[in-house]
Design a binder for these strands. Structure first.
Lengths: 114, 114
DNA sequence: CTGTATCCCTGTTGATACTG
DNA sequence: CAGTATCAACAGGGATACAG
């Protein structure tokens, strides 16, 4: 059909009108890129993430981590062997495909900062 | 000082806790990357942008364009020579520094789309 | 043609307290 | 240690009508 480009992009059941908005729907929001950025270096415990991001609340961090996990970007591993509960977060293989993008976002932010 | 990394990133008077969140503060939101993506190809009139983005409302498109203009990413040129008012939007030099990033965002979205 | 003015709804984020 | 529950606040975004 020669209609005016009505094609849409789908991901996990959500629809987006543009490939750019699909990406933003996944990594957008105030904290997701920050979490992903810190996870580039490797696994981090919940408490380590909080130290990296002192201004986020526990609730928000928890919610964003869940969203990232649901989208398959982040892996959550629980070690409950002994009382000091330990949970580690890391990038999945799919999440790692975002590394160049996250790095570019961080780099641009450094340059643009006054 | 050896404090726990309290440095912040500033842009246009706004403060961000991380270089990644600075970038997202500028190009984040539901529509900004879509607008920038369409402007990569060159100047576009208001009505042309609307055709590219059929699902955005006039109000939102207008607000987002203003925000992009305020941040110095987009140039707004008005031609009011004859009644059919004409306004063209284009990327500024500063806005063009975002092209690789926007392109990467769009590319990732295409690959991730199901 | 290119917007702005209202009004309202919703999602996201935050503060605080509490639990396994 | 690693969260969840609850409540509250706010900004982004949408519908519609109107203006330069």
């Amino acid at each position: 059909m020669e209609s005016v480009e009505a094609k849409s992009f789908k991901f996990k059941g959500r629809e987006y009108p543009c490939c750019a908005s699909l990406t933003m729907g996944i990594i957008g929001g105030k904290w997701k890129t920050v979490i992903l950025f810190h996870l580039i270096g490797g696994k981090l415990r919940y408490s380590e993430l909080r130290k990296c991001m002192p201004t986020v609340t526990e609730r928000t961090l928890s919610l964003q981590l869940q969203a990232l996990e649901d989208d398959g970007l982040v892996l959550r591993e629980v070690y409950h062997e002994k009382p000091p509960l330990k949970v580690e977060y890391s990038l999945t293989a799919f999440g790692k495909t975002l590394i160049p993008l996250i790095q570019a976002i961080a780099d641009w932010g450094e340059v643009a900062a006054e």
